[in-house]
């Protein structure tokens, strides 16, 4: 593949990824979307989830949470609140927070508290994406 696009993942703590890649798959507002070179200018919000990018045969995954991305001129910029690589994720901690979030979610649902429920849902989503990324990191 001749044409590549430049991927940048930036968090408030600095850039996490900055390299040339072939394809990027990201969790957008309306579901997953893929971006190849020469994509039309595009701007979308990002949900908590798994971001995948491929260079040649090498595939990398990242857990990203909340933010947005911008595509223009073969440049893909993700501005997210956090981005973690599979190797950096503490699986035990993610497991624990998943259980905690599930418990809270059940509690909030029982009491019909919307505020706590959205928070618990967000926490659960984060924990699940972390686990997914950690798993894929191990498999490859």
């Amino acid at each position: 593949m001749a044409e590549k696009l430049k991927l940048e993942v930036v968090t408030p703590k600095g850039a996490v990824v900055s390299q040339e890649v072939d394809i990027v798959t990201a969790p957008g507002y309306g579901g997953e979307f893929g971006v190849l070179a020469n994509h039309a200018p595009f701007l979308s919000t990002i949900k908590t989830g798994v971001l995948t990018y491929k260079t040649g045969t090498q595939e990398e995954t990242l857990m990203v949470s909340g933010g947005f991305c911008e595509v223009s001129n073969n440049k893909l910029t993700f501005l997210v609140e956090s981005a973690e690589r599979g190797a950096d994720i503490d699986v035990d901690r993610a497991m624990r927070s998943k259980e905690r979030a599930e418990k809270r979610l059940a509690q909030a649902q029982a009491q019909k508290e919307n505020f706590n429920r959205t928070r618990a849902e967000a926490a659960l989503q984060r924990a699940l994406s972390r686990l997914k990324v950690a798993e894929r990191g191990k498999a490859s």
């Binding site: 507002y29 979308s44 223009s72």
Partner: peptide
């Protein structure tokens, strides 16, 4: 000329 997903208004609400 950007494609916005969802609409600009909704993106603004997040941003």
């Amino acid at each position: 000329s950007y494609i916005y997903e969802p609409s600009t208004e909704e993106i603004m609400e997040v941003l």
